[in-house]
Amino acid sequence: MKRTTGMGRVTIRDIAAHAGTSFKTVSRVVNGEDSVSPALRQKVQEAMKALGYRPSRAAQTLRSGRHFALCVLSAVALEESFAGDEVPSFLNELIAGLMRACRAQNYQLVLENLAGTDSSPETIQARIASLRADGVILYPPQTDMIWLLDALELAGIPYARIAPGSAPERADCYLVDDFNAAREVGELLLSQGHSRIAFISGPENHLAAAHRREGLQAALAGRPNVELQCEVGTFHFPSGLAIGKKLLIQQTRPTAIFAANDMMALGVMAAASELGIVVPEQLSVVGFDDAPQARFIRPELTSINQNVREMGEMAGKMLIETSREKAAVAPRQHHIPYTLEIRQSVGRAPD
């Protein structure tokens, strides 16, 4: 709880004297307790900053039994999560939201990967039990790995699930309505006169992507003159590029392509550019995620914004609160509102 500075060892009593409050109040602020008014909390934090004080995490852990850290847990090989230097925008946004929640409570955020570990139940359970975290965040496809949920519960580690596609009764879940979001995309394309539509889904173990396909199919149901071609991608740019070329060199090619994430949609746009197909005059393209790249590309990409950063921040706050209260909370489903961001990549179907 102390830090050596040029002026000696700063203690919480020094902080209390500087802030004009009690050392117990300073202790509550340092430990992230809620029983301090926002104004007084700010005053204490300003005093800590002025005196160059940094709390000892080891001392905090010893006293409270908490680790003051959250963990983003992956159980798939890195090459499955990343393609070359491509970091999924979904993961970027999720981490940004979690960092915001952690920073507000002086928590650390760590990333852990179980891939490559001996897959025996005993080894997996030992790895999970050794995690020094007060809570775990699972994102697709980990969020739907039932064996992983079982292992976390056996270890007594609270966890939150981001965008699950199954078993929503297991832990707190943060998700958007993938089905209706995709159906809204389908209705948009129909309103623009498109009758040859293609959909690029993600891997089969990403269950939310399946809901997006089902939502698109629901929008097109009862339209006998509308053709739907479905392909399976990997959620990475090279996948969208390769499948985009495959779709666009067909003699009767689609006039609209909906990809289950933005990186594949950007790959489709690159394929169209290479083949001399103009977006949106000759091809409409829609993505899902509303990654920053969707606004940087020209023409700008139409996409579903599922507010992943908000999901991350909400999940982080919940796990921190759970660790502080040390009380079990009944699982809840948090439905995050989505928006269809209509931009330049969608136009009328060509004649």
Results as ranks from 00 to 15, higher is better:
M1R: 12
G6Y: 00
G8L: 05
T11D: 10
A17Q: 07
G20W: 07
G20H: 02
K24I: 03
V26T: 04
R28G: 07
E33A: 10
D34E: 05
S37H: 11
K43L: 12
V44Y: 06
M48L: 08
M48P: 07
M48K: 05
A50E: 14
L51C: 08
L51K: 07
R57S: 03
R66D: 11
L73H: 04
L73V: 07
S74I: 00
A75V: 05
V76G: 00
A77C: 08
E79L: 04
A83H: 12
A83R: 10
E86A: 09
I95W: 00
G97C: 03
L98P: 02
R103N: 09
R103H: 03
A104H: 02
A104K: 06
Q108M: 09
Q108P: 02
L109N: 01
V110P: 01
T117H: 11
D118H: 11
D118S: 10
S120Q: 08
S120W: 03
E122T: 14
T123Y: 07
S130A: 15
I137F: 05
L138M: 06
Q142T: 13
L149H: 14
D150A: 04
E153C: 01
A163S: 12
A163I: 00
A167K: 14
R170A: 12
A171Q: 02
A171G: 14
C173G: 13
F179W: 13
V185R: 01
G186P: 13
E204W: 08
N205E: 14
H206V: 15
R213N: 09
R213H: 13
A218T: 12
A219W: 06
G222V: 10
V226M: 09
E227A: 15
Q229S: 15
F235M: 15
H236I: 13
S239K: 03
L241A: 08
A242C: 10
L248E: 01
A256M: 11
A259F: 00
M263A: 14
A265S: 04
M269F: 09
S273E: 02
S273I: 00
S273P: 02
G276P: 11
G276E: 01
Q282H: 11
S284D: 00
V286D: 02
F288L: 07
P292Q: 09
R295S: 12
L301T: 04
T302M: 01
M311V: 06
E321I: 08
K326T: 09
K326M: 05
A328R: 08
A330G: 03
P337V: 10
Y338H: 15
R343V: 02
S345H: 05
G347E: 05
R348Q: 15
